[in-house]
Design a protein around this nucleic acid. Structure first.
Lengths: 232, 232
DNA sequence: ACATACTTGCTGAATGTTCATTCAAAATAA
DNA sequence: TTATTTTGAATGAACATTCAGCAAGTATGT
């Protein structure tokens, strides 16, 4: 009897996601390290579950199974389901912010290059995964009725929006365009979110096509700076 | 005891939403009519609940309360919660489709006027309500993991998308623009959905500002046809 | 080395709550 | 009466949360 249970448990643990193995170089044993490793492992499993089953059908049992751990585990490492979900959203928001900040950094000091890099970053394969998009959408769906989610979903946040406004203003000055910078920046942000939404819905839309549509927008608005192939 | 319960029940029914009173001109009694009236009443209450509490916290009890009716009512008029939600989404999809088709109709035969009308329709106060947007978003959040929702959410459907592509192609021919019509149409649809998403999130964004941003896009892409104030 | 207590991470059965669904009975209409 | 609509208590299933106990380490004492 005991043996049987042990075997079953071991079998389940075989299903550990690749994410765990990637971080396996950190000792699985060390006190403090293990704690963070486990949390990350559970967050990854949560994203999986959100993507696979949607928000309303994501259960702690499913998360625990996905992580290859036992039922009580989430309430041990996080305090409640609510807190696990918030930590998950926080993680995604941090990751997203880090990604676009890095892209901006790497783009150098040219305004046009920066704008191009920000748009490209949104359709980067590291960020723009079916899995991640689905998880974002799950949170969006609940955000209106939950202030906490709403705050974090706006990780596509004030700073992000302000950056776009500033870049649009700079390009307007450079190119003498007859645009309203704020409205243009808003529309640009909206187009990228809208494309994310459609990517998730999973028609035949691909990441490349979506990126091309966003670029089409850039080219139309700032013809003196961009072509469909890149900077002028 | 009986009296007390009756009074409570009556009190609850006082809370009937205005939507019910609007349709009160249809007899509340007639056999067939009553059936449809009730269904509509429950669908409205469902939209209310989705907007107020989000998908995952919408319960049949809340819907019934919102409609001022008893707990068992939904399973009588619809067969299950699932079917109520599908009927609700179906209703919203039909309403949306009817609205943009009517707008297209009313716009006459000018291509530019038609495109302008379609964009305006999306930000019409009859369609673009906080309440409705929130309900849409609730469904979007669940759509990826539910084929049935996914199909209906694409009520912003193939035909809609095709209409935009056709209009963009026609304008391209008329104005000699150097655009890719398909990508432009996709971006245009995406911009409107993205703006809806942001309206829901409820920063300081208003319907008017959102509409202005969409118009900014039109003006930028088709400068020979549009100004910010309308057709040229 | 070995034994002992103490710590930490984890398990899984038990508990209680929330909720969709059912249905017998009541109200209302035909 | 008979048929239809509505009610609300009862039922049962799904789930988050709790917790007593196990396992594996780690520190302390001998």
């Amino acid at each position: 009897m005991f043996l049987h249970l042990e075997q079953k448990n071991t079998a389940v643990r075989m299903k550990l996601s690749s994410a765990v193995q990637e971080t396996a170089d950190q000792e699985k044993r060390g006190r403090k390290a293990s704690k963070e490793t486990r949390r990350q492992q559970l967050i990854e499993a949560t994203i999986d579950s959100l993507a696979k089953r949607g928000y309303s059908e994501t259960t702690l049992a499913d998360v625990a199974d996905g992580a290859g751990l036992s039922r009580g585990i989430v309430n041990f490492h996080f305090e409640s389901k609510e807190k696990l979900l918030i930590a998950t959203l926080q993680f995604m928001a941090d990751e997203y912010a880090a990604h676009w900040n890095a892209a901006l950094e790497k783009a150098g000091s040219g305004v046009a290059a920066q704008l191009w890099a920000l748009v490209a970053a949104d359709f980067d394969r590291r960020i723009c995964t079916k899995r991640k998009l689905a998880a974002w959408c799950a949170f969006w769906g609940e955000a209106k009725s939950r202030p906490t989610y709403q705050a974090l979903c706006g990780a596509r946040d004030v700073k992000y929006q302000e950056t776009f406004v500033a870049l649009c203003q700079a390009l307007k000055a450079e190119g003498g365009y007859a645009i309203v910078a704020e409205a243009t920046a808003l529309a640009l942000c909206a187009v990228m979110e809208g494309l994310w939404l459609r990517l998730m819905m999973g028609d035949g839309l691909t990441r490349e096509k979506a990126h091309a549509a966003a670029v089409e927008y850039l080219v139309a608005v700032f013809p003196a700076h961009f072509t469909r192939e890149g900077l002028k």
